[in-house]
C-alpha cells in the first residue's frame, strides 16, 4: 500500500493503522496519573452523551464511575478506550495522549471488559485467551493464560467450551482476558450486571484481589454498595460530572454530620435540652423519642449531648452517628438533576 493510502486510513479511521512503533515512547514519572481527563465531551449529532467531563485517576486506584442509565458511562469508557472519538476535550490514558494516531499504543496498554464479556462460544476458555494473547502480542502466552485463569479460579475449566459456561463463569473468563495483558488501566464496565448474588460476589472478590495487587481499575457500575466497598474514589456522572471524591468526602460534602438520639420516653422540652448544647446547630424529630441533631463535629458533640440528656433526666437508649450511604449521595445528586423529584 502507498503512504498516501496509509494517510487515508489514519484520517478516516480511529488510528488503528498506526502501530506501537510510530507512537512516541512515553516514560512514566512516579506518581503520574493513570488517567487524566480534561473537559471531554462526546455528542452524537444533537444528542450529548457526556459533556465537559474532567477527572484524574491515580495509578493503583480503584475509581468508581457511577450514574443512571444513559448517563454516558459506557460512552466514556469507549472514548477513553479509543473506540469512539471525543467531540472535544482531551485525555491522557496510561501516559499517552488520547488521539486517533495513538489508538493502537493506548489499546496495547489498557484492557476493557465490556458489560457482556463477548467470548467465542465454539472455542474453549484457553483458545479464547490464546486469541487475545496473540492480538496483544504477549510473550509466553501459556504462562500468562495459566496465571490469569488461576487468578480467577478457573484453571480447572480451561478446556471447557465457552458456550457451555454460566454467565458468572463467562464473566470470570472476561476478567481473566483483561488481566492477561497486565494492563496499566483496566476498564470494567458493569462487571456484575445480570449476575446472581453469588456470582456477583465472586466477581467482586476478584476485583478486590486486583485492588490489593495495585491494579488501576476504572469501574462503571449501578451498584452503589459494591462501589462503596471497592472504590477509593467515585465520580457520579449524569451527562455532566456531578461530583468526584471518596465516598466519605462526598458524604461530608453533601450532608451535615448527624447524631441520632433515642430516648425511652419523649423529652418534655427537647428544644430546651438541645438548644443548651453549644455543638448542636439544629435538631428535629420525626417520631416520638427519636431526635436527629445536626452537629459540626461528631466526636466533640456526642459527649456533650450525652451529658445534656443525662442532666435533663432523660432515659437515653442510644446516641449514634447517622451514616449516610453512597446511595444517599447518589440519590441526592441525581434527584437534584431531576428537579428534586422523588426517584
Amino acid at each position: 500500500m502507498t503512504s498516501h493510502h496509509d494517510a487515508e486510513i489514519q484520517s478516516t479511521n480511529d488510528g488503528a493503522a498506526t502501530t506501537a512503533s510510530t507512537a512516541a515512547p512515553v516514560s512514566h514519572a512516579p506518581g503520574e496519573p493513570a488517567l487524566v481527563v480534561s473537559h471531554l465531551t462526546k455528542r452524537f449529532g444533537d444528542r450529548t452523551a457526556f459533556s465537559d467531563v474532567s477527572f484524574e485517576v491515580a495509578r493503583g486506584e480503584v475509581f468508581g464511575f457511577l450514574g443512571p442509565n444513559g448517563a454516558g458511562k459506557t460512552t466514556t469508557v469507549r472514548t477513553l478506550g479509543t473506540l469512539i472519538a471525543p467531540t472535544s476535550g482531551s485525555a491522557i490514558v496510561a501516559g499517552i495522549p488520547l488521539s486517533a494516531e495513538n489508538g493502537v499504543e493506548i489499546r496495547q496498554r489498557i484492557a476493557i471488559m465490556p458489560e457482556a464479556p463477548g467470548l467465542y462460544s465454539r472455542l474453549t476458555v484457553t483458545e479464547n485467551l490464546e486469541y487475545f494473547a496473540a492480538l496483544f502480542g504477549l510473550r509466553q502466552p501459556e504462562s500468562r493464560i495459566h496465571d490469569a485463569l488461576a487468578s480467577v479460579n478457573l484453571a480447572d475449566r480451561a478446556q471447557d467450551l465457552c458456550g457451555g459456561l454460566s454467565k458468572g463463569l463467562r464473566q470470570r473468563v472476561g476478567l481473566a482476558r483483561t488481566l492477561m495483558s497486565d494492563p496499566e488501566v483496566m476498564f470494567l464496565d458493569e462487571p456484575t450486571s445480570g449476575l446472581d448474588p453469588v456470582a456477583a460476589l465472586e466477581v467482586l472478590t476478584l476485583i478486590s484481589a486486583l485492588r490489593e495487587k495495585g491494579v488501576t481499575i476504572f469501574l462503571t457500575t449501578h451498584r452503589l454498595d459494591e462501589a462503596e466497598k471497592l472504590c477509593d474514589r467515585v465520580a457520579i456522572l449524569n451527562t455532566t460530572l456531578r461530583t468526584v471524591g471518596s465516598p466519605a468526602d462526598l458524604r461530608a460534602q453533601l450532608f451535615h454530620s448527624t447524631l441520632i438520639v433515642r430516648t425511652l420516653v419523649p423529652l418534655k422540652d427537647p428544644g430546651g435540652v438541645f438548644g443548651a448544647i453549644a455543638s448542636v446547630s439544629d435538631w428535629h424529630s420525626n417520631e416520638p423519642g427519636r431526635y436527629e441533631l445536626a452537629v459540626a463535629d461528631i466526636a466533640q458533640a456526642a459527649p456533650q449531648v450525652a451529658r445534656g440528656l443525662v442532666g435533663a433526666g432523660a432515659d437515653v437508649l442510644a446516641i449514634g452517628e447517622n451514616e449516610h450511604s453512597l446511595e444517599d449521595v447518589y440519590l441526592a445528586l441525581v434527584n437534584e438533576d431531576r428537579g428534586g423529584k422523588q426517584l
Partner: peptide
Amino acid sequence: EQGTLEPLLTTPISQR
C-alpha cells in the same frame, strides 16, 4: 451479533 466485536476492537488490532 455474538457480542465479540467490541472486545475484539478494544485490542491493538488495526482495521487492516
